[in-house]
Nucleic acid binder design. Structure first.
Lengths: 227, 227
DNA sequence: ACCATCCAAATGTCCTACATTTGGAGGTCG
DNA sequence: CGACCTCCAAATGTAGGACATTTGGATGGT
């Protein structure tokens, strides 16, 4: 519903808000190309300048990317993800790694306390996919591994914590060139299964211990250990 | 070179970058009024449209606030603070409280490991101010209390963690109407001093224990101080 | 000294025009 | 028939002007 302005807030701000909502609602999916400016102009009944200001705001927020001669594409759907990503990119990788580990440990502990039967079933499904992806390409395995850990944190039931973890992880795995060879390590493999077991058993201490051990293993693999 | 990011950076984006830098550098302090668009236009040698798009972007980022008929004022100097603040405002206060506590605990632990002699001296100075503010107005005490805990986390030496904590705290203390009567509690008072002692002694376990106890005390006071 | 009025200044919105870049349509040549 | 080149429509980028709207202070009268 494209309503006309009635309040004292600037028109461009209202338009930008509508665009944000369209992105958040999925009407403009990530990766898609949004309608050109002149079409938005006639649909909204505002001038191209106003539309451009609203679009420019979202471009600087990192939600959109304008390609001259082509169109404007949706690049992200979370404002926090972009600003956190920029901040983490400037930070010391070790510092970012510590914060991420902190969130993951707490998320694993919470999962053992709050995970439902459906959550556990979902985790086992994702874990199966992760095991299956060990023989596939590296990118697919990294994706499956992240999907599993993300689901663990989400199962913890603290959406804010989960979102911070979720937005912190990709930048780190991108910055650090990990994804080395942590698939063939049987210890890591066993720890993943022990983690789900601890969550299912409702043992927060064991779950957090598994998470801590996993992060430690990952850190060891990252540092030297070039053997 | 596979990556040829020589794609022309829009002029408005460059201008917005300059404005951001001016804000971050302190040339445009928070609260001040920036030059009017007309002046920026002639100073930068670009059209008013371009200047307005850059300003509008920063307005939507939350860094600026435009007041028609008056001028444009600097509202914040950290992009992450704004987006984190918005996200936390939508979150469950309990969830936000947990994340903040998590960061504070780790920050206190790190402080015991990495704080320098100057850091400890600074902490004792801030702690004196906090003690002195116990008899003053409530707002002043809350400010002094936050300044102390913020300094503890900063002394931990993880800037990313400190920034997240710093940006997470105001929203929480604003949301929850705490600042109740946690100044007259002698236990809380002693714990603050024990925390600095543990940091100076380089005892991470004791420091984290003090932090945990402090958060627990605060939570108890918040929940119903009756029992 | 107080108050209503007016005015300059600043932002908000719209308009036209042109430049620049891109992707594809269409034709050409091997 | 396929690969390649040319050209054009489309989309965003930039510029400049015009007018509306709101604000804060100056102005002038009571």
């Amino acid at each position: 519903m494209l309503s006309s302005p009635q309040r004292a807030v600037p028109l461009a701000t209202q338009v930008a808000g509508q665009f944000k909502q369209l992105i958040a609602a999925g009407d403009w999916p990530v990766g898609s190309r949004i309608p050109p400016e002149h079409r938005l102009t006639e649909q909204l009944g505002v001038s191209r300048n106003t539309v451009r200001e609203a679009l420019s705001a979202l471009v600087h927020l990192g939600l959109l990317e304008a390609r001259p001669g082509d169109g404007t594409y949706v690049r992200a759907d979370s404002e926090l993800q972009v600003s956190l990503g920029r901040r983490v990119a400037e930070a010391d990788p070790d510092d970012a790694f510590e914060v991420r580990a902190l969130l993951e440990h707490r998320g694993s502990r919470r999962a053992a306390l709050h995970a439902t039967a459906e959550d556990v079933a979902h985790l086992r499904e994702l874990l199966d996919r992760r095991d299956a992806a060990r023989t596939g390409d590296l990118a697919g395995f990294v994706e499956a591994d992240f999907a599993f850990h993300r689901a663990v944190v989400i199962a913890g039931g603290n959406p804010l914590l989960a979102e911070l973890y979720q937005h912190l992880s990709p930048v780190i795995t991108q910055t650090i060139s990990d994804s080395a060879a942590l698939d063939h390590d049987s210890t890591v493999h066993d720890l993943h299964h022990h983690l789900v077991d601890a969550i299912e058993a409702g043992d927060p201490d064991a779950a957090e211990a598994c998470s801590v051990a996993l992060v430690a293993e990952g850190r060891d693999i990252l540092r030297g250990s070039a053997s």
